[in-house]
Design a protein around this nucleic acid. Structure first.
Lengths: 224, 224
DNA sequence: AATTCTATTAGACAGAAGGGTAATATTCTC
DNA sequence: GAGAATATTACCCTTCTGTCTAATAGAATT
């Protein structure tokens, strides 16, 4: 896999030079880790990765031109063996699931302890999936959709899509955002009576008793 | 959470006595880990878990009467803080996804190195998600299907755990189920005024305007 | 011992929710 | 063209929400 045995080769893709230098120093302090190349952008990073075929890639998600998620997808196009660790700061957690589904093997926040990062790299290099606590909470919540079928053991027909009209879907969207009937009416430029009428039929079609249940159901079943 | 500080309390649920003893010995060799209880079946295991409220549960998935996945679901019904490590010798994908979506925080094969397991327990106790290589391969493959929908769902950025009191968490749980203040009051055997008071403070703590927003936020952030 | 946090209850009040019924206009299908 | 589904508006009425103020009591902390 790499030139030397028992040494994990690493490519870093990260736009902030300081962070990049910090990572390299911290990692090269470990005899079993070796940063073989680094880049401040995804385009060059991809070339380096193709060239060096490292064991592990540290990929920043907040890159300028091409974002980290696209880059990961491209890496996966030519190799499934290269392990990817997605790096991010706390305020960019929206892309968690996207990153994981694009092929990231691990997800770390940038404030991770350097020694811990080394440990994670070792784990990931042998195929472990490692998710930072903050991320794990979000990621694990995105899986439940399959559990109903999986628990039963039979891959039965999953959740039945509830047939709402276009207008009702609009209303439902606002409803999930916690808006009142009055607010919904204003948004859709209709009277409160209309908004209430739509909410009523939504409740009936979704077989729930009130808007809270409708909102929860909508979120859980990904209707919004 | 536990008696001593800095010590991670553990409950083991595993049907093979030999494995159980092995686990206990291996783990208790670490000063920061303490096996507080163990069981050879899920029913007793659940009781022990409710009693000791450990930081981490090691749950075998191939249990006789109640299987580990059901057991995990039940654990999740009364606590979201207890971390669960699923242990197994199997590597069937259906089981993996089911285990993860039932609330497992980590997934280890039984041939894991004891020292590594200790390390995983430390990680998991602070919220890390850790998946064995064999498992990770399967699990990550099951995510892509949901990424589009999930991306929209996971929109909230700053994910700080909102500190609700025990009672408030109970109320929130009922609230998410769409129950009215009156119904919540009946469930908790308190007056409607009390229920309303709790709901009020929940709304304030969660920084939302009404129960719908609270419910949606709770679901999206996995507070229930 | 004093203070803070939590749980509990109460009364009152404006506003919102949800159900029922009903009418009108538009659009799409048969 | 007739009929069905959808969108719109209106009124009435009961119940529920969310906020306020206020008080009591136990537990935990300092």
């Amino acid at each position: 896999m790499t030139a030397k045995k028992n040494v994990i080769s690493i490519v870093i893709v990260e736009d902030f030079k300081l962070t990049r230098v910090g990572l390299r120093c911290a990692l090269n302090a470990n005899v079993d880790l070796e940063v073989v190349a680094e880049s401040d952008n995804a385009v060059d990073g991809l070339k380096l990765i193709e060239k060096y075929k490292p064991d592990v890639v540290l990929m920043d998600l907040g890159l300028p031109t091409m974002n980290g998620i696209e880059a990961m997808t491209k890496i996966r196009e030519f190799s499934k063996d290269i392990k990817i660790i997605a790096l991010t700061s706390h305020d960019r957690q929206e892309e968690v699931v996207a990153a994981l589904s694009s092929g990231a093997n691990a997800y770390c926040l940038k404030d991770i302890d350097p020694e811990k990062l080394a440990e994670v790299i070792r784990d990931v290099s042998i195929g472990v999936c490692w998710l930072d606590p903050v991320i794990a909470n979000l990621a694990l919540n995105s899986i439940p959709k399959v559990d109903d079928a999986a628990l039963v053991g039979v891959s039965s027909a999953n959740h039945v899509k509830i047939p709402l009209t276009e207008r009702e879907n609009e209303v439902l969207k606002h409803l999930v955002e916690g808006k009142s009937n009055t607010e919904i009416a204003k948004e859709l430029i209709v009277s409160v009576h209309t908004a209430k009428a739509h909410v009523c039929s939504i409740l009936q079609k979704m077989c729930v008793n009130d808007r809270v249940q409708a909102a929860v159901k909508a979120v859980k079943e990904g209707m919004v």
